[in-house]
Deep mutational scan, measured.
Amino acid sequence: NMECRVCGDKASGFHYGVHACEGCKGFFRRTIRMKLEYEKCERSCKIQKKNRNKCQYCRFQKCLALGMSHNAIRF
């Protein structure tokens, strides 16, 4: 039983190089595919399941810091 490295929810698998839940997987995919840019935040918000949708900037930064990558495809 793995935990999502981004928000701590139950991970659904290994997505983009990191154990992640469906919510964070979809969030990362949409951000990359649609080339979304979020308003910069300096607060280093703590991303948890209950508040993961509050600060998209910090959520995406955490995805990147954990090594999530669009190129991380498993063979």
Score class of each variant (00 low, 15 high):
residue 37 E to W: 06
residue 64 L to K: 08
residue 52 R to N: 10
residue 45 C to F: 03
residue 54 K to Y: 15
residue 75 F to P: 15
residue 38 Y to P: 02
residue 20 A to F: 15
residue 70 H to A: 13
residue 40 K to A: 09
residue 57 Y to I: 00
residue 57 Y to L: 02
residue 55 C to N: 00
residue 24 C to V: 00
residue 36 L to N: 03
residue 2 M to Q: 05
residue 55 C to I: 03
residue 37 E to T: 09
residue 21 C to D: 01
residue 51 N to K: 07
residue 74 R to S: 14
residue 16 Y to Q: 11
residue 73 I to C: 13
residue 3 E to D: 13
residue 31 T to L: 00
residue 42 E to Q: 09
residue 24 C to E: 00
residue 6 V to C: 01
residue 61 Q to A: 10
residue 51 N to E: 13
residue 73 I to A: 15
residue 70 H to V: 14
residue 55 C to G: 01
residue 12 S to Q: 09
residue 17 G to D: 09
residue 23 G to L: 10
residue 13 G to D: 09
residue 61 Q to N: 05
residue 64 L to T: 06
residue 20 A to G: 01
residue 71 N to C: 07
residue 63 C to N: 00
residue 56 Q to L: 11
residue 27 F to G: 01
residue 60 F to T: 04
residue 35 K to L: 04
residue 35 K to S: 12
residue 20 A to R: 02
residue 22 E to G: 06
residue 30 R to A: 05
residue 45 C to H: 07
residue 26 G to N: 13
residue 62 K to W: 03
residue 3 E to Q: 11
residue 3 E to P: 05
residue 45 C to L: 02
residue 19 H to W: 12
residue 24 C to H: 09
residue 59 R to D: 05
residue 62 K to P: 01
residue 41 C to L: 00
residue 72 A to L: 09
residue 26 G to T: 13
residue 17 G to H: 02
residue 53 N to Y: 07
residue 41 C to F: 05
residue 34 M to D: 15
residue 20 A to S: 08
residue 75 F to I: 12
residue 25 K to R: 12
residue 17 G to Q: 07
residue 52 R to A: 14
residue 56 Q to M: 10
residue 25 K to N: 14
residue 42 E to T: 09
residue 1 N to T: 12
residue 36 L to C: 09
residue 38 Y to A: 02
residue 2 M to E: 07
residue 34 M to W: 10
residue 26 G to I: 13
residue 68 M to I: 02
residue 1 N to P: 04
residue 1 N to I: 15
residue 13 G to A: 07
residue 40 K to G: 04
residue 35 K to C: 12
residue 46 K to N: 13
residue 18 V to L: 07
residue 67 G to F: 04
residue 33 R to G: 11
residue 16 Y to P: 04
residue 1 N to Q: 07
residue 65 A to G: 08
residue 10 K to R: 12
residue 49 K to E: 15
residue 32 I to T: 09
residue 5 R to I: 08
residue 63 C to Q: 02
residue 12 S to P: 05
residue 47 I to E: 07
residue 67 G to N: 05
residue 36 L to P: 05
residue 7 C to M: 00
residue 66 L to T: 14
residue 20 A to I: 12
residue 8 G to Q: 07
residue 12 S to V: 07
residue 35 K to G: 13
residue 32 I to N: 03
residue 15 H to C: 11
residue 66 L to E: 14
residue 55 C to A: 01
residue 34 M to T: 05
residue 32 I to D: 04
residue 50 K to T: 12
residue 49 K to W: 12
residue 21 C to F: 00
residue 64 L to S: 03
residue 39 E to N: 07
residue 1 N to Y: 07
residue 27 F to M: 00
residue 43 R to K: 14
residue 64 L to Q: 08
residue 43 R to F: 14
residue 62 K to N: 05
residue 72 A to V: 07
residue 44 S to T: 11
residue 24 C to F: 05
residue 66 L to D: 04
residue 70 H to R: 13
residue 38 Y to D: 01
residue 14 F to C: 10
residue 51 N to R: 05
residue 16 Y to A: 10
residue 60 F to L: 11
residue 30 R to H: 10
residue 73 I to R: 09
residue 62 K to G: 03
residue 18 V to G: 04
residue 47 I to D: 09
residue 42 E to I: 06
residue 47 I to W: 06
residue 64 L to M: 08
residue 59 R to Y: 14
residue 15 H to K: 03
residue 22 E to L: 04
residue 24 C to G: 00
residue 56 Q to W: 06
residue 64 L to Y: 04
residue 72 A to Y: 08
residue 42 E to Y: 10
residue 13 G to T: 07
residue 41 C to V: 03
residue 50 K to N: 15
residue 42 E to R: 05
residue 36 L to F: 08
residue 54 K to R: 09
residue 34 M to H: 13
residue 17 G to R: 02
residue 47 I to P: 08
residue 21 C to I: 03
residue 49 K to H: 15
residue 35 K to T: 06
residue 30 R to T: 10
residue 46 K to M: 13
residue 29 R to D: 15
residue 11 A to N: 07
residue 24 C to D: 06
residue 56 Q to T: 06
residue 74 R to I: 12
residue 10 K to G: 08
residue 64 L to P: 01
residue 5 R to Q: 14
residue 18 V to M: 11
residue 57 Y to S: 05
residue 12 S to M: 06
residue 3 E to M: 10
residue 31 T to D: 03
residue 62 K to F: 05
residue 61 Q to I: 07
residue 6 V to I: 13
residue 33 R to N: 14
residue 10 K to F: 06
residue 55 C to V: 00
residue 15 H to N: 06
residue 61 Q to E: 11
residue 39 E to F: 06
residue 72 A to D: 15
residue 54 K to T: 12
residue 63 C to I: 03
residue 52 R to L: 10
residue 68 M to Y: 02
residue 75 F to T: 15
residue 57 Y to P: 00
residue 11 A to H: 07
residue 38 Y to E: 01
residue 64 L to V: 12
residue 2 M to W: 04
residue 18 V to K: 01
